[in-house]
């Protein structure tokens, strides 16, 4: 069972994440944590200085973080994007598509189940933040 998953090759970022308020109030932090009701767009002016953005999932039903992640990726953020909290195996493939590349699930995850979930679909129907070509592009490639 794994408690931390990371789909990046660079060195993990060590600095603790600060709250959004703290981040907006100070200029030099490089890691921030967004609660699910906080507006990801507030980070856009200072995206360049960030190496880690952690997005909270207080309940797996709370899907706001999926939009937050895409907004950050669409704005060009390339640092680590972490989903933390009530993150379940069956959600990780969707989260990956939205741009998350690291995970700190509350309950440890069975790596075999995760591997099955991640490899399940060869193709996807829509463009998202993971660069995969949707089937409409493959059909008209």
């Amino acid at each position: 069972m794994v408690e931390f998953l990371r789909f990046r090759d660079d060195v993990p970022h060590e600095e603790p994440a600060v709250t959004l308020d703290a981040f907006l109030g100070q200029t030099n932090a490089t890691a921030v944590r967004l609660e699910s009701d906080e507006d990801a767009r507030k980070l856009l002016p200072q995206l360049g200085q960030l190496a880690l953005i952690e997005i909270a999932f207080p309940k797996f039903r709370d899907g706001r973080g999926y939009s937050a992640a895409r907004i950050l990726r669409e704005a060009g953020y390339e640092g680590e994007l972490r989903a933390a909290g009530d993150v379940l195996v069956d959600q990780i493939p969707l989260m990956r598509r939205c741009g998350f590349d690291s995970f700190v699930p509350e309950a440890a995850i069975d790596p075999a189940a995760l591997e099955r979930a991640l490899g399940r679909y060869d193709d996807v129907y829509q463009k998202a933040a993971d660069g995969r070509s949707p089937v409409w592009a493959l059909r008209h490639g």
Binding site: R70, C98, Y121, V124, Y125, V135, W136
Partner: peptide, 14 residues
């Protein structure tokens, strides 16, 4: 139908 199927952002709507 195709666009909404397993839409990664909109599978945990309010």
């Amino acid at each position: 139908r195709q666009w909404s199927t397993f839409h990664p952002e909109f599978s945990y709507l309010p």
